[in-house]
Design a binder for these strands. Structure first.
Lengths: 130, 130, 130, 130
DNA sequence: GTGGTCTAGACCACC
DNA sequence: GTGGTCTAGACCACG
């Protein structure tokens, strides 16, 4: 099935984290069109959060056209997302993992790694906007 | 000086974004001990947000020991953060930028790039936790 | 300002009734772009329903692009709706009211009036679909 | 026979839509006392909904005294409803259809037509209540 | 004061 | 069993 996580630290609302994880799963091909998402109750129990929070995330996915809920049956993804081509994904993913392990070997703390990533993504985003 | 940004979409509270940006600046050496942060008013005007929000961010920074406010003078950083060594930073940064431009050349949308990064950071974090 | 109602009988969820009333207000020109909607708390107090229910309606309006919420300020409409031209509105509205009063004079109970309306709207909708 | 419809968008529970359609048929004389309703299975198959849902609607109709189920034979209406007199019905119905076609000619979208109807019915109901 | 998030728990509609 | 609606009430972010 599909495994969710919720990180309490980040300041990002839990329901948005769930939404992002599904969107990411679709973008990267880990989720395919028509796949069933875990039931609201299952996610709530697994992450020890309130079912309403999960339901809110699923509703948000419906609004975004990424999932449909069918009462009595469950919630299912719809593949309205352009997936990363598998070849590019494999290649880039492997290089990125390499980068991470190099950073770790260089003695960077996770916090420092994250800072570098964030800084560069910020730059990239500024470039797009400009 | 130091330039702040606030992204409305992300779900991260504005004041936390400001805090993170200062922390990141310190971690990466873009901010040095004793540097002056822009005034509350200047940030508020520049980002079109409420001065209270900026003030809250600066208060958090003080609380975290990353900055001190001197009445009538402004807010100044304190270097209580382990900076990434310049050499490692330069090397890793350049490789990461290379990775980004390759991803872009491979035709990945910004959204897809972000998804890959997030997915892999998620994995790394799981690894640490485990 | 703008006045909401909630009809308990209809079986339509309260939050959807609120959404429909705003949409209708925009369609008919009773609400203009940029008008402030009553605050969540005001609506909740006025209709004696839970603030969360009102918030849900307002969020739905945001998803539909019909309103935007600004924390600390309120919720405001956006005019992304094609309004009925005032002239046509006036003419048709008056004739329809005439029809209603004729139906009433003919001795039709409200329930019967509603049945006729529903039946004919059903027919129209079938015609569109076909 | 009698044809049911279910509109998924409206927010009205499917089983209530079925109940209302029978009630309306009786009010307008489209259904006469003793007429047989389509079998649960036929309705379920035709509308692609669960037979339980149809059964629930028929149960409600029995409860409201509008139909009776005869084991092994089917469900039949009972005429316990005050029908709209045929003359008034014909006259009002034709005028209302005229109004609809005028609205359409005036360029109103179905959504706008519905908005006008709803707004005026709302007003009427307020008047009754007042 | 505004809207937003989350919890806890009840009840309903649908399969 | 599934998802959906609503309530009550706490706490947070923003102006």
């Amino acid at each position: 099935m599909f495994a969710f996580r919720v990180l309490d630290r980040s300041g990002v609302p839990a329901y948005l984290q769930l939404v992002d994880q599904v969107r990411r799963g679709l973008l990267l091909g880990h989720l395919q069109e028509g796949d069933q998402l875990p039931t609201v109750r299952a996610v709530a129990a697994g992450l020890v959060i309130n079912p309403n929070t999960v339901a809110k995330a699923y509703r948000e996915l419906e609004h975004a056209g990424l999932a449909v809920a069918r009462a009595g049956q469950g919630t299912f993804t719809t593949g309205k997302v352009e997936q990363v081509p598998a070849a590019a994904y494999a290649r880039l993913s492997s290089r990125l993992r390499q980068w991470f392990s190099d950073a770790q070997e260089a003695g960077l703390a996770p916090e420092q790694v994250r800072a570098m990533i964030d800084a560069i993504m910020d730059d990239e985003q500024r470039r797009e906007t400009a």
